[in-house]
């Protein structure tokens, strides 16, 4: 206690100086309009700065929830895309159908569902992704999966009640029909199991005009994938002389290393289309066996 008093006495001049300074500055910032405005402005600026920093940290803790909310919302928007709908050919009206899906005659072709990645590998040659939606949520085999930024990820191959297994593009047995955005030429996307950053595109005809950096989209003739979603960009290409087709090295658009939120896309006509396909083959077989 004594030391405190000694200290105060020793530096009394300084304390008086401080006191008078503070007093005059208080006068200055209280009674002068411009100074008052400036003082309040600086204080405001400072508290605003602190608030924004705090907000940044706070945001970080809410990130997960926010992500899911965003993905759900994106999904609802994706469901509204006009490309999901198509209309039956109405040029020849033979019968009046009682089941109308839409007042304009359109019906929904693609349905989007949000999902979260719970397991993912990129290191093997057969890479699978597991997402937290299953048959209880309406997921079926052969549905397409795209990442939250709209890039193709893979195909659902197996479904349990609450989870489903997705064969990623980085799977040696994965074959995806793709097309070049510029020319529309169609080829097959595969993976050689070497570098998870690059895919292989085969069966691109020699006539295609190729450049590095060209965009590759899902083809309009796929049963699983809706057309026009990006798969990757051309990184390199060379002509295979034995087949006369291009073989392309494709840089993947989706980042398979940090997949978090994805969308599962259902083609409502998948069953009908594949059934027709197999029945046609069967029919042709029969024709071959019993020529007319």
């Amino acid at each position: 206690m004594r030391n405190i008093f000694l200290f105060i006495r020793r530096y009394s001049n300084f304390f008086i100086f401080l006191f008078l300074q503070v007093l005059s500055l208080w006068f200055l910032f209280t009674y002068n309009r411009t100074h008052r405005a400036t003082g309040l402005g600086i204080a405001n600026e400072f508290t605003g700065w602190v608030n924004s920093k705090y907000n940044k940290i706070e945001d970080y803790f809410k990130l997960n929830k926010e992500n899911q909310r965003l993905n759900r919302f994106n999904d609802s928007l994706l469901n509204l895309l006009p490309g999901n709908f198509s209309s039956r050919d109405t040029s020849v009206l033979s019968t009046i159908d009682s089941l109308v899906f839409d007042t304009t005659g359109r019906y929904r072709r693609y349905i989007f569902r949000p999902a979260k990645v719970v397991y993912n590998t990129v290191s093997g040659v057969k890479n699978y992704i597991q997402v937290n939606r299953g048959s209880a949520q309406g997921i079926k085999d052969n549905m397409a999966v795209i990442s939250s930024d709209g890039y193709v990820v893979g195909l659902v191959v197996n479904v349990s009640a609450n989870f489903s297994q997705v064969m990623s593009l980085l799977h040696v047995q994965s074959i995806v029909s793709a097309s070049l955005k510029k020319t529309g030429d169609i080829g097959d996307i595969q993976w050689d199991g070497k570098d998870p950053r690059y895919l292989i595109m085969k069966k691109v005809p020699k006539t295609a005009d190729l450049k590095k950096g060209d965009t590759i989209l899902t083809s309009p003739v796929s049963f699983n994938y809706p057309p026009g979603y990006m798969i990757g960009t051309v990184a390199d290409f060379k002509l295979d002389n034995t087949t006369g087709m291009y073989s392309l090295k494709v840089k993947t658009a989706a980042n398979f290393y940090d997949l978090q939120q994805v969308h599962v896309i259902e083609n409502t006509e998948y069953n009908e289309q594949t059934k027709l396909n197999t029945e046609t083959k069967k029919k042709i077989e029969q024709l071959k066996n019993n020529p007319r």
Binding site: F14, F17, S24, L25, F27, T30
Partner: peptide, 13 residues
Amino acid sequence: PGLHAAACVLICY
């Protein structure tokens, strides 16, 4: 108020 007082206190210190 306070502007010159602050300066004067400073030089007096």
